[in-house]
Structure formats: C-alpha cells, structure tokens
C-alpha cells in the first residue's frame, strides 16, 4: 500500500522547452503533500511525471529519477501502464466516462486489470464509493450514467474510480478548482480521511487549501517567462506558512508576489 516517493534530479521538457529544472524532493507515505506556486511554475508537470502521464503529451521527455519505495519508475524495464495502475490520478476537471454507468466508472480500472468476478466488482464498487463519501448519494442509481451527477459528485466519483484499484499513491491535480465551496469542503474532508491509507500529492492554487489539508508543502517558482520552473523549498506545511526558509516563499504566501 502507501509508498514513499523520492524524486532525484528531475528535469522535464516539452520538446525543446525546458519546463522543470532539477527537482529533488522526498514525499513521505500516509501524508498529504501539497505543491503550490504561480501558474507555469511546473507543479502540475512534476505531478504528471510521478505516474508517467507527462510523456503522454507528444514531444514531452523526462530526465532524472522518480523512486517509488526505492524503485525507479523510469527504469528501462518498467511498463508505464503498470505504473499508472499503482499510482492513481484525479484531474482538474471531473472526467467520468460519460457513456458508462456510475458502477462501471468505479470499477473501470479493475476491469482494465482483468478482474471479471461479479461479486468482487460489486464489493469494490461499494467500498470505493463509501471511501469517496458518495455511496449514500448514488446507491440507488448505480446504473445511471456518471455524467448525470453534479460536479462535486462527479469529482468524488473520479476519486472512487482512482481508489478502486487500491493504488500506492494518489495524485490530485487541482481537484477542487472546478467545484463550488461546499463540494470543495467535501473533497478536502475526504483527502484527510484518505491519507490514512494512501500517499497523497495534491497540486493547488488555493493556499488556504494547502494549509488546511497538507502535512508538507513544496513551493515551486520560476525566475521569468520562458525559464524553467524550480522547486524553491519544501517543508512541513506549518513551517512554510508561518516561518518559511526563503524570502521568495514568504512573498508568495503573503501575496507580495513578483
């Protein structure tokens, strides 16, 4: 289950554009780690490199190491499909499969992994929906399309889909940015519950959110337009928000950016 991530000397590129420069960072298991920073600083790019989604974009390349409990997910013999099965991801906008029922959405990952047993799928479906705090709301309409739910429910459905395969790590790319405050609160509560079982990495633009949900915060910045993003510092969330080590971080957090 929950595994630790060690990023070592990670450089990320989109074609010739150097997007992220030399990131080294350790992410502890059973913790919430937040990535914060201004737009374009590469925090989402780093997140996407943790389950090899970065390379899905044409021309995108990776240099450096990402160790999952000591094993490099970029090793030549590693299958990216396997990596993505053990590292789940939730996206900025809820993206349930619109043609699938709620039930099929939840167990989609399991079906891809070859699970066919009806009773097992039923069991995982209920457990995951309960885990995502959605069960009570949808238990009577599991056969209805997932696209019919509200935005917040859809996002929780996507979280249920991600945790159904019991991943080692859960990556969240601004999971609340398309949601209203009440749904946001529901997701934040859920994140706090999920960290008992999973290693969670969340990208957020909302600093209050980072302060509320995360144990550790990593601040990314870029020195100018067209320059690569860098990791400025990473520390306990409390320390970052009360007494950051660098002036840059303090300026960003207190709103004196630039």
């Amino acid at each position: 289950m929950a595994k630790r991530i060690d990023i070592k000397g990670l450089n990320l590129y989109y074609g010739r554009f150097h997007a992220v420069d030399n990131v080294t960072l350790s992410i502890p298991p059973r913790n919430v780690t937040a990535f914060i920073g201004p737009s374009g600083c590469g925090k989402s790019t780093v997140l996407r490199s943790l389950n090899r989604m970065h390379e899905v974009i044409p021309g995108a390349t990776v240099d450096g190491k990402v160790l999952l409990d000591g094993e490099d997910i970029y090793d030549a013999g590693v299958d990216p499909v396997e990596v993505r099965r053990t590292i789940g991801m939730v996206f900025q906008r809820p993206n349930p499969f619109p043609t699938m029922s709620i039930r099929d959405n939840v167990v989609a990952g399991l079906k891809l992994a070859g699970v066919r047993s009806k009773s097992r799928l039923e069991e995982v479906c209920e457990r995951s929906l309960r885990g995502a705090n959605l069960w009570e709301e949808v238990k009577d309409r599991l056969d209805r399309p997932g696209g019919g739910l509200s935005g917040g429910q859809q996002q929780r459905l996507c979280i249920a889909r991600a945790i159904a395969v019991q991943p080692d790590v859960l990556l969240m790319d601004e999971p609340c940015s398309a949601l209203d405050p009440i749904s946001t609160l529901a997701i934040e509560d859920l994140i706090t519950e999920l960290k008992k079982d999973y290693t969670i990495v969340i990208v957020t633009h909302n600093m209050q959110q980072a302060a509320r949900v995360s144990d550790m915060t990593a601040f990314f910045n870029l020195s100018g337009v067209g320059r690569p993003g860098q990791l400025v510092e990473a520390d306990d969330t409390e320390k970052i928000f009360s007494n950051p080590g660098k002036k840059e971080t303090e300026d960003y957090i207190s709103g004196r950016f630039g």
Partner: peptide
Amino acid sequence: TPTMQIEGALALGATRWEMIRTTVIPF
C-alpha cells in the same frame, strides 16, 4: 474526443488500445 477523457483512461492504467476502446470509440 476530449483530452481529459483520454488522460482519465490512461491514468487508470489503460493501454493505448484499451483507452481507444473505453473513450474514443464510445465518443
């Protein structure tokens, strides 16, 4: 086919063909 659908399938551990089957073809 929306990119977010395609990425959703890939992030779940779908192979390229499985991604096509679950998102591109139904869409």
